[in-house]
Structure formats: structure tokens, C-alpha cells
Amino acid sequence: MPIRHSIIHLIDKKPDGSPSVLHVRDCELPDSQARDNLLTDLNEAYNAKPGKAWGLFHEESGAYPLSGWLRDYLDGKQDFVAFSCVAVEHLQKLMEESNLTVGGHAMFTHYQQGMTDYLAIALLHHSDGVTITEDLEVVPAKHLDLTQLHLAARINLSEWRNNPNSRQYISFLKGKGGRRVYDYFRDFIGCQEGIDAPGETRTLLKAFSDFVESEDLPEESAREKTNTLVGYATSQAKLGEPISLEELAALVDEDRPAAFYDFIRNKDYGMSPVFPADKRTLTQFKRFTGRTDGLSISFDAGLLGNKVEFDQARNQLVIHQVPQQLADQIKRAGASA
């Protein structure tokens, strides 16, 4: 993961409401293993965070100037240090106006992963701890705490520059404290949400359930394909990479690599061919399956308590809204009896 440029500034803002103080670094971070390790750890922490939003830049304006500064940097009109300085000054201004944050170290890193260029922007914080000196004394110490990563964004520069129709080249964290906490950071990036990752993931899982039902797969095969889907999507989320429907379809059915993709396209689920996975939605996905004495039952866990009820005392399942195809078959069988 080669780093092209990286720098860290400090916005020193106390929780007492006093004005923040900006400490600007005047040169890039030098090449070092510590710098490289920090980016690796930051990416891992960022990828592991649930609840990301995905989108694209607003049109450049006085309210959303970052994309213009970034374009000037990439076009060689200003260097990386100058870009980061004007950007962090704007971040400080918005932070002051929000009056919600205690500052932090603002890290800007332009790096390459594979053939793709990214810009990572994150507000880093420290936690208090202790350490042991060479003299075996216990002394206070601060350490970078990436578990406290709440304000961060990653811009796929290659996608932004080469695919003008893309609506998902920016991702940013949606903070736990509600929209007011991260709104100013989203406005600093100048990002508007362009794709609904939870919604796309839910649609994918619905399409997969429909596909399994239409194929009338044996229980073991259905379970295996479910594990393949969840494993692939979870792995992509951990890597910070999107789901590719064509790639997923080839994994779900190696003998017919286009079957699932064609099913989705022909049924017109309205899904993007490539989209980010939502980890929270994936963790909630599970299928219950069972087969005995000529009876086969399979349904999504999300239907339990809604369309499917389990009476534990009687060991019975109650199914509401029976699939129309099944209902028609039963009606025809009853009429001919």
C-alpha cells in the first residue's frame, strides 16, 4: 500500500467551549515504518466500522470547496501540503461552528492500493494510559486510540476522476451520536449520499432468498450457497471493497456462474451491479431450514415473528401470507380430490 503523501495537523479544541487552536505541520510525514503501520491500522479500523454512508461530491461551491482544492492538487496546481493546510483550516472553521467536537489530529493521506488511488481523511484521538520506562518506572503515557475513530472518510480518487457517473466514490462514517455529530464533517468533505448500502444489501438478500426458492435447492445446497454469499460479502466489507454481483454469482453457482446474476437482472430488482455491503444488515441475515418426511421448509430469519410464527409449546409453525404459487397448487389439489 504505497503512500504518495501524508501529513498530520492538530486542531486543539477543549471541551470547555473556548476557541480552538490550529497547529499546522509545514512538511509531509517522512517515510517510516511507523507511518505505514498507522495507515494500515487506520484502514483496518475504518473497514471494521459499521454504519458507513456512500456517496459523491456536491457541486463545488463556497459551501463545499474541498473538491475544488483536491482537483487543484491532483492537477498539480498546488502541492499536497498546501492542499492539506487549506482543507484543515476549513475543517477547523466548521468544527467551531458546530460546537460539538473536542478537536483531534487531522490526518490526510494519499495512497495507492492495487491500481487505485485513495485519499483518507480522519480525525484521530488519544487515550491516557501508562508505560514502563527503561528504569522500570511506571509513568503516564498517551496512545493513539483507533477504537475512538468516529470522523473519517475515504475518497476513491481513481473512481472520481475516471467515472463521472459514479455515485459511490466517497465513504464516510456515520457517528453514533446522531447526525449533528457528523454533519459538519460530511459538509467538510462536501459529500451527498448517492447509494443506500443497507437498502442495496437488503435487496441482495431478498433476491438471493427468491433465487434459492425458485431453484428448489436441497437443504444442504441452500445452506452452502448462503454461507458463500455471506462469506464473500463480509470479506469485501472487511477489505473496504464493494460487492460485484457478477463476481458473487460466479461464487454462488460455479457450474452456472451467470445464473444468479441473470435471475437478478431478469426480475428487475433495481440493484446496482457494484455496491458496498452493509455489515450490520449482513450479520442479521440467516436462513432457517429443515426437512423431514417429505416436508421441506426454508425461510429467512427476518420473517420469524412476522410472516412466520413459532408456537414452542405445540411445536408448530404458523405461516402467514402463503406464497401464491404454493397456495394455488394446494387449491388445485383440493379441487381434484
Rank of each mutant, 00 (worst) to 15 (best):
S209R: 01
F285Q: 14
H143C: 02
F260M: 05
F260Y: 00
I264E: 06
L124F: 04
R314D: 14
K331M: 12
D128Q: 07
N163F: 04
D268H: 13
A333L: 11
L123S: 06
I121Y: 10
Y261V: 00
E220S: 03
G17L: 11
K176C: 05
P140Y: 14
H23T: 15
P323V: 13
H5C: 08
T131Y: 10
S209V: 05
L239A: 07
L91P: 07
F263R: 09
G199K: 07
D210N: 14
R71N: 14
R186Y: 09
P2R: 12
E224C: 04
I189G: 00
E28N: 14
G103D: 03
D255T: 07
Q321N: 11
D183E: 14
E159W: 04
Y111N: 02
L144A: 05
A335Q: 15
Q312Y: 15
I319R: 08
E193K: 08
P218Y: 06
I189P: 01
E28Q: 14
Q168F: 10
P19Q: 03
R256C: 12
N165V: 00
L151E: 09
R35S: 04
S20V: 12
S67E: 14
N163S: 05
I121N: 03
V86C: 15
Q236I: 02
N47E: 06
S84D: 14
K13N: 06
M1S: 09
G17W: 04
T203P: 04
A120C: 07
V308D: 13
N99F: 00
M115Y: 08
N227F: 02
R154K: 15
L38C: 03
R280I: 01
Q113W: 02
N99Y: 02
H126S: 00
F260Q: 03
E219Y: 09
T234A: 09
F211A: 06
P218D: 06
Y261F: 03
F263P: 05
T283C: 11
G305Q: 05
A63F: 04
V130G: 08
Q78D: 12
K238C: 05
G76F: 04
G190I: 13
L205P: 03
D196I: 03
G68D: 06
R314Q: 14
G51V: 06
I264C: 10
V212A: 09
T40H: 06
A120Q: 13
L22S: 09
V21K: 10
A34F: 03
F285S: 13
V88L: 12
V81N: 15
Y184A: 13
I330T: 07
G62C: 10
Q329A: 13
L66I: 05
L326Q: 12
A141F: 00
E309C: 10
G76Y: 01
H125G: 03
D210A: 13
T131H: 09
H90G: 15
A34E: 08
T40D: 07
G194F: 10
K49Y: 01
Q92M: 15
H126G: 00
K267A: 15
D196S: 11
E215I: 12
Y73P: 00
K225T: 00
E213A: 15
G62Q: 12
S298V: 05
S61T: 14
L42Y: 00
D135P: 08
E193I: 10
A106T: 14
D135V: 07
L70V: 07
A313T: 11
K307I: 08
G129Y: 07
E247W: 08
N165W: 00
L119S: 02
R161D: 04
M1P: 08
I155W: 07
E200N: 13
